[in-house]
């Protein structure tokens, strides 16, 4: 008897699933993409769901690259409508997208600073990009050639730095934060060496390989994507330095402090003014073909770009977003509202 009902239930479940396959509509927006933009995107989604009659969009955190891959897979309800990205779309991704007939609208939402921070129980650090490169590169130039990184202590690099072991907790290679850190801080530091600068002019690829390689002898610890965990580890170990997004520094200002990079403190104002050296722009991309098919996309874009959300006093700044300058915000908003197609 029990078995009969179970069999019937399974049959019912299977028919149900088959019926689902034919359901060709979707009533809520689907968003994928960067884990860095995730906190902002979800905040807007929630606000949007509460204040309008549309359903709350579903936001997945897939990483920038993974998001663009899903986004560019095609047009239709099975594919996401919007993807978040903590870097600009690459030409290759753009071509892939246009090939399947997708018209993309790019919306720049603001900046995110990457900070190097340590526990408040030790003195604040003052670093330059060059020193960061020397501390973390796999090979550093010394006496005209590249040698495996010999520095064990910060004071080995520069006597003004603390006499403590180099111990940096940072994101793994799969992370967008790591990409941006390597591009902005490590490359920036590598350029400071004449030999490497000459290499950059001669052979871009070789320069990138030299500048992007992070040491693997234990001084750089891949601490995973969980930035809260890094904060806890920093608290426990006053010599350790962590690398993460500005919003985590902002939320944990009582426990950790950001290192000055090139004499500039990682503060809201400095990042917004573009003075802090390690900051990047964040974007989201909208699939124009879905506007009007999936309800609410235009309204979601309007909400995201409104002053109420991403303006200087908007609720996203409470979440750690660093807004664009006022004039740029205006251009971005008008472009987004018109759904101006992206060209590359």
């Amino acid at each position: 008897m029990i078995k009969k009902t179970l069999v019937a239930a399974v049959a019912a479940a299977l028919t149900f699933s088959a019926a689902q396959a034919f359901a060709q509509s979707r009533s809520q927006i689907r968003i994928v993409g960067s884990s860095t933009v995730f906190p902002f995107s979800t905040a807007v989604a929630e606000q949007f769901g509460r204040t309008t009659n549309f359903k709350t969009p579903v936001v997945e955190s897939t990483g920038s690259g993974g998001g663009l891959k899903l986004f560019c897979a095609g047009v239709g309800v099975g594919h996401p409508d919007i993807t978040n990205s903590s870097r600009r779309i690459k030409i290759s991704e753009f071509e892939k997208c246009t090939k399947v007939g997708i018209t993309i609208t790019e919306v720049k939402i603001g900046f995110d600073g990457i900070v190097l921070a340590n526990s408040k129980s030790s003195p604040p650090l003052v670093l330059t990009k060059k020193q960061i490169y020397q501390a973390l590169a796999k090979e550093v130039p010394m006496g005209g050639k590249m040698v495996p990184n010999p520095y064990q202590k910060w004071s080995d690099i520069d006597p003004s730095l603390p006499n403590a072991k180099i111990e940096v907790l940072g994101p793994p290679p799969t992370s967008g934060t790591r990409d941006a850190f390597v591009e902005l801080a490590m490359e920036g530091g590598a350029k400071g060496f004449d030999g490497l600068e000459a290499l950059r002019k001669a052979d871009k690829k070789a320069f990138k390989a030299a500048a992007h390689a992070i040491r693997e002898d234990g001084a750089y610890v891949e601490a995973g994507e969980n930035d809260n965990l890094i904060v806890q580890k920093l608290e426990a170990n006053p010599n350790a330095i962590g690398i993460f997004g500005f919003s985590f520094l902002d939320q944990n200002a009582d426990k950790i402090q950001g290192a000055l990079i090139g004499g500039v403190e990682p503060s809201f104002e400095n990042i917004a003014a573009g003075e802090y050296g390690i900051s990047r722009s964040m974007y989201f991309y909208v699939k124009k073909e879905h506007v009007g098919v999936i309800p609410g996309i235009a309204e979601y874009v309007a909400e995201f770009t409104s002053e109420k959300a991403s303006g200087e006093e908007g609720y996203l700044t409470d979440k750690g977003l660093i807004p664009l300058p006022a004039a740029e915000r205006k251009t971005v908003r008008s472009g987004a509202m018109k759904l101006a197609p992206l060209t590359m």
Partner: peptide, 12 residues
């Protein structure tokens, strides 16, 4: 692994 605000009402 997604941010879902609405409480799901059905299997789909």
């Amino acid at each position: 692994v997604a941010f879902v605000v609405d409480i799901p009402g059905s299997l789909s």
